[in-house]
Design a protein around this nucleic acid. Sequence first.
DNA 1: GTGTATATCTCGGGG
DNA 2: CCCCGAGGTATACAC
Lengths: 219, 219
Amino acid sequence: MRLVVGRCSVDYAGRLSASLAEAVRLVMVKADGCVAVHADGGAYKPLNWMNAPNTLREEEGRWVVTNPAGETLTITFSEVLLDAAHDLGEDPGLVKDGVEAHLQELLAAHPETFGDGVTLVRREYPTGIGPVDLLCRAADGSTIAVEVKRRGEIDGVEQLTRYLERLNRDPLLRPVRGVFAAQRIKPQARTVAEDRGIGCVEVDYDRLRGLESDELRLF
Amino acid sequence: MRLVVGRCSVDYAGRLSASLAEAVRLVMVKADGCVAVHADGGAYKPLNWMNAPNTLREEEGRWVVTNPAGETLTITFSEVLLDAAHDLGEDPGLVKDGVEAHLQELLAAHPETFGDGVTLVRREYPTGIGPVDLLCRAADGSTIAVEVKRRGEIDGVEQLTRYLERLNRDPLLRPVRGVFAAQRIKPQARTVAEDRGIGCVEVDYDRLRGLESDELRLF
DNA sequence: GTGTATATCTCGGGG
DNA sequence: CCCCGAGGTATACAC
């Protein structure tokens, strides 16, 4: 990784045009060739950037970065305050816990969350326009389609609505009810869901995970 | 801006849990207090980060970053290879051209894109659940609601569908047809749109901009 | 503050 | 390779 701090102006021409007037900024060049221009604020997002793969041509006080799509980033330096290079090596990578996939996994293991006698048919059940997260069977033989989200917003309800419309065309599944499951469901999403007869379930992630580890302890 | 390159392990606890095993990384601390941990690859997104506002407590070989929501980022250093601070000052900021707002502007100036005799009623026409990008009048007196996107995906069709449902309740506007306009429309979005009787128009941004400058040249 | 829409979104998975 | 969906999305803007 190469770090350059300097006074520069920047121009990007590609999916859009964007330009930066002269100021002092950090230019970061990573080992994979990607380039990012950072100001001293504005969260982690750079002002301007070019993703790998691309080629960096370094002229006198001027860098021209080009990628295979023909986009270009031009950085013109009038002053360089720091120019340091370090070999960081491979990164072992991030380990995450608590994302939607894990929530789906826990709910698949505990379909009774959606009602007494509810059993799992399968996860990622294909509908023709994308897979529905969980397909379950209710005690009365009817089908339940579950959309799982970490945060329940209106998009998730729309997604489930599209799946339900498709699934209800299948005589072997019909009637299919919808359940929208999330750690937290926004009021607007709940209103739209209930308007459409879709059930809403707020899931306690930590409690579910607790159940899981309790069960593991039995073995 | 402070730049630290060093061997470190990192833990984040907040909306999820995420951890990084020990490796050499760049830690960037911006003037606004935000912290980002970068590996030597992977575009501009850091492996781990904390957005401003937050407080950084620096102990012996260990940084603890806390934000008002109670999330914490802990960085434990075993070795420091670089520790440099620079005052970058205020940034004049990015000037952009070619985003959705410009596309909307150009289409507002050229409603004939949507059919002969089509005229603009107004931009950002309020519907009660958000503004529709363009409201137009067709030659036959019927109304056209246009949703403009740079990239036409399914979310945009859903958005337009919600607007159309609202607009068609208004007897002064009814009947309202929908048109989905984008530089490029994804197949799935097109399928859903056409299912619902919504027209799809792919817009050539450069050609429209050309028309615009031709007209300016007449004056 | 919540809600809504945008983004050169980034990133990862599946066909 | 493109398409699609998720994200600790972040960010701006309206109500």
